[in-house]
Design a protein around this nucleic acid. Structure first.
Lengths: 109, 109
DNA sequence: AATTCCTATCGGAAATATCCGATGAATTTA
DNA sequence: TAAATTCATCGGATATTTCCGATAGGAATT
C-alpha cells in the first residue's frame, strides 16, 4: 500500500453508503453477501448501489465471486490492514513513542 | 469516534494534497509547521491550501495555534488513532481472528 | 500611524461525484 | 425456447468539490 493505492481506498470509505456497506460486509465475513442483499440493506436503487460497490472493488476493499446468477461480495481485510498500516507507518517510523498509545488500544481487542 | 466523525476524517484524508500535508505534519511532530511552510511545500495557492487545511481541521486531524502572526499547524495523532480504532473495531469485535494478522504487522513498528 | 507579513474567507468557474431510470448481458427456471 | 432473476453499465440531471484571484483582518515592523 502506497499513496496511490491508499487514496482510492480512503475515498471509497469516505461515503456513508460505502462505509456502511463495507462495515456490513466485514461483519459478515467470511460468508459474504450477495449484491442484492446489500442493495436491500442500503435502501438505494440497484444501479446506484452497484456504482458504489464498483468503487469499493476498484479500491481493493471488496472482492466478488460469481455464484449462480448472483454475485457474492466479501470484504478484503488484507486491504484494510494495509491501509491502516500505511496510516500508521509515518508516525511509527519517525516517532515510535507516538504509536505506542495507538497500539495499546488496538491490542485490547 | 463514530460513523459521523469517521466520515469527515476519511474524506479529509482522501485527497492527495491533504493526505500529503497530514503525513508531512505527522513527520514534523511535535514541533509542527506554519501554514506558510505547508503552502510552500504544497505548491498550491495560499487560498487553495488554506481551504484544504480547514477541511483537515474540521475533521479534527489538525490542530492549530497562533504564534505571533503565523499559525502553527500540528497533526492530531489521537484523532488518527481513533480513526484506526474505528476501522478495526468491526472486524475485531465480531471476529478476533481477522484482526490478529492486522495487529501482528502493526506491532512490528 | 503607515506598511508589511501571514492567513482566512468570499465569489465564481471548472471538474468531479452522486443519483436515478433504462437498457443489456448472463444465468436459472418454466 | 421463453420468461424471470440478478447484476453491470449507459445517459443525463443535480449536487458537491476543487481551484484560483481578490479581499479582509490581525500582528509585527518601520
Amino acid at each position: 500500500m502506497n499513496i496511490d493505492s491508499a487514496l482510492p481506498a480512503l475515498a471509497a470509505l469516505a461515503h456513508p453508503t460505502r462505509l456502511e456497506a463495507f462495515r456490513f460486509l466485514v461483519r459478515h465475513e467470511p460468508e459474504g453477501l450477495s449484491t442484492g442483499e446489500l442493495v436491500d440493506a442500503s435502501g438505494l436503487t440497484q444501479s446506484t448501489f452497484s456504482t458504489h460497490l464498483a468503487v469499493l472493488a476498484k479500491a481493493g476493499l471488496v472482492k466478488s465471486e460469481k455464484l449462480g446468477r448472483q454475485q457474492i461480495q466479501r470484504a478484503d481485510i488484507d486491504t484494510l490492514r494495509e491501509l491502516m498500516l500505511f496510516l500508521a507507518k509515518d508516525c511509527c517510523q519517525s516517532r515510535p513513542e507516538l504509536c505506542e498509545p495507538l497500539l495499546a488500544e488496538l491490542t485490547c481487542c
